[in-house]
Simulated scan of single mutants.
Amino acid sequence: MSVYALIFGAGLPYFIARWWYSSRRYTKDKILNETMANYFRELKESSTIKNLIDILSTSVEFRDEVEYRPSDAKSLQPVTASIKEELESRFSDRFEKSKKYTAPYCHKACVLIYAQLLRVDVPDGHLLRDKYVIVRKSIHLLNGMLQISLTRQWLGVSLLIMELSQQLVQAIYHKESALMQLPHLTPDILRQYYRQKRRHMRSIAQLMDLPEQDRKQLLKSLSSSQYLDVLEVAKKYPQLEVAKAKFRVAGDKIVTPGSIITFVLKLRAAQPGTAKANDVADKENVDPDNEEPVVGEAKEEEEEEEEEALDAVDTLLGGKKAEDEEPTEKSHDAHAPYFPG
């Protein structure tokens, strides 16, 4: 009996206290409070992509969950050298060790994040596994950083954080062409085409809008099967087009001085090569029998959509989940061969 009394009398309070302490270390989104405090302190409205990577590297999760071995400093040297060479030769950028975030785990995380973005090989097996952990964890941590920037209503920084998240998934440096998201494409292929045609392509939509002959000229170094792979993936990337944009005041039909204005933006996603979103928008407000605009129904539908948009904005800024939110339709799987799945 004394043994059971000892277990329940001393052991149970110890495990409860340990659980309570552990749970209080994290936010409701399972990010360490210490990490969020770092983000809150270091994130600025003027932060650049480079600043965001530096701040991300300070995440305490990388210190607690990614082992730092004595051999890591030496193993990181060839990776760092390759990163410097890539940045200088391709983008005229410089990579320097942070003078502000000097902890060894911060430098390690920063180097491996750049290795992911620049698709630099990591020959050391231990570092490669660490890179996979850091990259997967970074996507979740960037959501925490995004919450802070949204709360402060910093549009520019919020967009950069979302872009960095996508760049980590696609393993693309922020100055790199979006075409690098497609399979089999390399910087050398694009560089050769740019020299011949003396023009740049920044989007997948531009590639799909090229005449067939020019597209084959760009991808002439690829085999027939590789060329079809490029087209198959490119056709799955939607084109976002503005269907409607206007300012609204909740509960009022006109914009009055001193009122709180909400900018309502309606976007449509269209697959490359399909009808333009604006054309689709026009057809939605036309009666198929007489092909005349259905003014009453269209206006009512428009007001309902705008109210939904206003509710969505309030939900986003308030951090609340809509009560009657329906599951969205599953989209195509992303082509992300460099992301550790």
Rank of each mutant, 00 (worst) to 15 (best):
L6V: 03
P13A: 00
F15H: 08
F15I: 15
I16F: 14
I16M: 09
W19T: 15
R24N: 09
N33I: 12
T35P: 03
Y39T: 01
F40D: 14
F40L: 14
L43Q: 02
L43R: 01
S46D: 14
S47K: 00
T48D: 01
K50R: 14
L52M: 05
V60S: 12
F62P: 01
D64Y: 14
E67R: 09
R69L: 15
S71H: 11
S75P: 07
L76G: 01
P78W: 04
P78R: 03
V79M: 05
E86F: 11
E88L: 15
S89K: 07
R90H: 03
R90C: 08
S92W: 06
E96S: 11
E96Y: 10
E96F: 10
S98N: 08
K99F: 04
K99I: 01
C106K: 05
A109I: 03
L112A: 02
I113Y: 02
I113T: 06
D121P: 06
V122E: 06
L128T: 09
K131Y: 04
M145K: 05
Q147T: 10
T151K: 11
W154Y: 01
V157Q: 05
S158E: 08
L159T: 14
L160R: 13
I161N: 03
M162C: 11
E163S: 01
Q166W: 13
L168D: 08
H174R: 07
H174S: 05
K175D: 04
E176A: 06
A178K: 13
A178W: 08
L179F: 02
M180G: 07
L185E: 03
P187G: 00
Q196S: 09
Q196R: 15
Q196V: 12
R198W: 02
R198N: 12
R199F: 04
H200W: 08
I204W: 07
D209S: 13
L210Q: 00
Q213P: 02
D214H: 02
L218A: 03
L219A: 01
L219G: 03
S224W: 12
S224F: 11
L228K: 12
L228M: 12
E232R: 11
V233Q: 05
K235M: 10
F247S: 11
R248Q: 13
G251D: 05
D252S: 15
D252A: 14
I254M: 14
P257Q: 01
S259I: 00
I261A: 04
A270D: 10
N278Y: 11
D279S: 13
K283D: 11
V286E: 12
E304G: 00
E305N: 12
L310A: 08
L310R: 07
V313Q: 14
D324M: 05
A334D: 14
H335G: 06
P340N: 00
G341D: 14
